[in-house]
């Protein structure tokens, strides 16, 4: 990505709130591949993403631009995550605090993805108002101490913007670390 454009991978289990996050914060029309669900999944929700969601968020005019790429949540669509995860700057991992049956698999997915991509993560704990509970859940999924955690209600756009703020703060910290490493190398 260019100096001021950042690619954010929005991922997490089925029905965690990934599409809701992108829809709530995107400043451009969201590209969505939602279709009607069938079988057991229709008991959980009426529509699901089958390929990707795409939205954008800009600050200071267009000086800093986030490109939000949302993945489907079901394992059968894992190939889409593999396509979308290239050149990612940050992973925004969305988890539904109340969907406990998804947590074990989500933990495995989160650690595996971050170990492979070696980028920072923001963990958005949806349907949760208590940051301490959100942090405990994130730790139980294997989140590390430095990884940002947000308690949010992603059906509320203001809550979605809190996730974006955390993404921006995490990006800033990443850039600062990168600049420090560069200046350190120059001094050496």
């Amino acid at each position: 990505m260019s100096d001021h454009t950042f690619k954010i991978l929005v991922t997490g289990p089925f029905a965690a709130g990934k599409t809701s996050l992108i829809q709530s914060v995107s400043q451009t029309q969201v590209i969505s591949t939602d279709v009607v669900t069938s079988g057991d999944e229709s008991d959980v929700k009426a529509h699901t993403t089958v390929a990707m969601d795409f939205g954008t968020y800009s600050i200071e005019g267009d000086d800093v631009r986030l490109l939000l790429f949302g993945t489907p949540g079901q394992p059968r669509f894992r190939f889409m995550t593999n396509i979308l995860k290239g050149d990612v700057d940050i992973v925004a991992f969305v988890i539904d605090a109340e969907a406990r049956q998804t947590h074990p698999g989500a933990g495995v997915e989160l650690r595996s993805l971050l170990a492979e991509l070696r980028v920072p993560a923001v963990i958005a704990v949806n349907r949760c108002d208590d940051l301490e509970i959100a942090k405990r859940l994130a730790r139980s999924l294997g989140a590390l101490d430095g990884e940002a955690v947000v308690a949010c209600q992603l059906n509320d756009p203001d809550s979605g913007r809190e996730v974006v703020v955390e993404i921006l703060i995490t990006l800033l910290a990443k850039i600062e670390r990168s600049e420090l490493a560069t200046s350190g190398a120059e001094v050496a």
């Binding site: 591949t33 939602d34 993403t49 089958v50 390929a51 990707m52 079901q74 059968r76 669509f77 889409m80």
Partner: peptide, 17 residues
């Protein structure tokens, strides 16, 4: 192959867009 059905759904989803 179960993957075929998922690939078809993703392809059609993108093609609609």
């Amino acid at each position: 192959s179960a993957a075929h059905a998922a690939l078809l759904a993703a392809g059609m989803g993108l093609a609609h867009q």
